[in-house]
Amino acid sequence: MKKRLYLELENCIGCRSCLAACTQCGGHEERNRNYVYDVNPLVNRQTMPLMCLHCVNPACARSCPAQAIQIHETGAVLSALVEKCIGCQNCTIACPYGIPKFDTEQNLMYKCDLCIDRTKDGIPPMCASVCPSNTLQWLTDEEIEAKQKQFNLDNGKWVTSMPYLEGETNVRVNLPGILQGVTKLF
């Protein structure tokens, strides 16, 4: 059964376990490929992860003059192929979220590969495995649909992959505010 990375931004507690876990994935050379931001640092403790959304038609790959960014059959947009990447950083500029990172020493881009050595076999990525708050989850489409029904948001922006950004994404995102539609038990 196909599973996807699913983000519930409201849950994030800023522990950055997802960053620590990303360093642990096979082939990641102990460098993390994701980000966590303080949303309003001088005001409150809200944080949110910024992850590659694995766009269906990814700007990063389209912008790459060397075709170094491959798309896996699962839809995962992979890290640059070492032998092809020319270090131009077009991808970082093209990505609406600035996801691809750059190794200046090796003159090489590296980005989230959706932990392809795990997800190709249906095993959850490291970040979604450890995330203590369930901000990052690894769910089937049915489970995601149930979430969509459960959190009936009034702003109609259930998924961030808005047409004016990047179009459809493989990762699904639930914006902050999920609790506003919840009916209280008593």
Binding site: N11, I13, G14, C15, S17, N44, R45, T47, P132, S133, N134, Q150, I178, L179, V182, T183, K184, L185
Partner: peptide, 26 residues
């Protein structure tokens, strides 16, 4: 931290969370 997915789940079900703390912790 790894208690948190259970804490949030209470609120997702419509349950309540009351926190007493001098700081507005996460």
């Amino acid at each position: 931290p790894t208690s948190m997915f259970r804490v949030w789940a209470v609120q997702e079900r419509g349950g309540y969370l009351i926190v007493a703390d001098p700081r507005e912790t996460p």
